[in-house]
């Protein structure tokens, strides 16, 4: 970590050099054709009550990283340490207990809920699994629905009787059932209508204040991230290219990819938007089967130099106070 920052309390979650590699099969009798390094050397810490956002475009590995943390994807290397305990080394029972403190909210509340269960049953499910007695369960379900702004009288409804925003509230209530300390929110508002998004974001912010929840907030929507995050991690093709305080990264991006990403978002203000200098990136994401050997951004980078194709840059402190991996701008390494 950086040496100049304040000493922080031990993080709730520490991810060290995480790698998630997938074999790609095809061709003759399904022989292995190659390896996609979806996440390739990823480190991150999240403290209690903190919101860390993971941003990047499709295929950058942000969801895979989230899934590996949750135990939904098998890491090929690295460590995931929760409250000081390496999850891979913990006894199965202990690991299950710790994993229970990490819950997830996915993008699509429709497929996240069982259509044949009432919303009350859905919210009660984790409580059943944890062995909470029936009368205690009923009380807790009512409490949870109230917490997310639904009425206890709605608990006998089925998901198809609810709107998208209400379904996402149900998903959040279920995620909170076992009082987790960390919520992985994977694009939690992307599928919702604009007028509903802010309701859900407000709800997430309120729940965080009330319960001191930590969020790993995975999103491609940078205006949402800027609003809600304490720290931001920017990924490109499986690696972190920049990370830092949200304020710093958004006001003075250090990596050319972060710059381009920010410049690409059209501002909801015609005067500002038409005055802006455009940084339009050429080309598209290279194939993850065959990423560039050096800096992974080299094929699209507007400031690349000869050495960038060969040398893999590492994250180093920037004058702005963030950390970025760019040989051209931050060569001292």
């Amino acid at each position: 970590m950086t040496t100049h920052s304040e000493p922080r309390p031990a993080p709730l979650l520490a991810v060290e050099d995480l790698r998630v590699h997938f074999p790609v099969r095809g061709g003759w009798l399904g022989a292995q054709r190659g390896i996609v390094k979806a996440v390739d050397g990823f480190s991150l810490t999240i403290s209690a009550g903190e919101t860390v956002a993971l941003v990047g475009e499709s295929g950058c590995g942000k969801s895979t990283a989230g899934n590996a943390i949750l135990g939904l994807a098998e890491p090929s290397g690295g460590r995931i340490v929760y409250e000081g305990i390496d999850l891979a080394g913990a006894a199965p029972r202990r690991r299950a207990e710790l994993r229970r403190q990490m819950q997830v909210i996915f993008q699509d509340p429709v497929s996240a809920l069982n259509p044949k269960l009432t919303i009350g049953q859905s919210v009660a499910e984790p409580l059943v699994v944890a062995g909470v007695p029936a009368n205690e369960r009923r009380r807790r379900v009512d409490e949870l629905l109230d917490l997310v702004g639904l009425k206890a009288s709605q608990k006998d409804r089925y998901p198809n009787e609810l709107s998208g925003g209400q379904r996402q509230r149900v998903v959040i209530a279920r995620a909170l059932a076992l009082s987790p300390k960390l919520l992985v929110c994977d694009e939690p508002v992307s599928a919702l209508d604009v007028s509903i998004r802010s309701q859900i974001l407000n709800l997430l912010m309120r729940l965080q204040q009330e319960f001191g929840l930590a969020y790993l907030f995975i999103s491609h929507d940078l205006s949402v991230v800027r609003h809600i995050a304490d720290r931001v991690v920017v990924m490109y093709l499986g690696v972190i290219v920049e990370e830092g305080e949200a304020e710093t990264v958004f006001s003075s991006p250090a990596h050319p990819y972060t710059e381009a990403l920010l410049a690409a978002i059209p501002l909801p203000d015609p005067k500002e938007q038409r005055r802006r200098k455009a940084i339009v990136l050429e080309g598209e994401l290279p194939s993850p089967l065959d990423p560039p050997a050096g800096c992974r951004f080299v094929t699209r980078c507007p400031i690349r130099e000869a050495g960038c194709a060969a040398v893999r840059p590492s994250l180093v402190p920037t004058p702005q106070g963030s950390r970025a991996a760019c040989l051209v701008r931050f060569p001292a390494q």
């Binding site: 709107s163 925003g165 209400q166 209508d193 604009v194 007028s195 509903i196 998004r197 802010s198 309701q199 974001l201 407000n202 912010m205 309120r206 940078l222 205006s223 949402v224 800027r226 609003h227 809600i228 949200a246 304020e247 958004f250 920010l262 978002i265 501002l267 909801p268």
Partner: peptide, 27 residues
């Protein structure tokens, strides 16, 4: 007016409660 107010901005204040529109988009 309300719709424009619900959108988080890339500049200015952060982390405040966003304006929201009551209820849901009706069927």
């Amino acid at each position: 007016r309300l719709l424009l107010g619900t959108i988080p901005k890339l500049t200015g204040e952060r982390k405040h409660l966003l304006r929201s529109i009551e209820g849901t988009v009706p069927d």
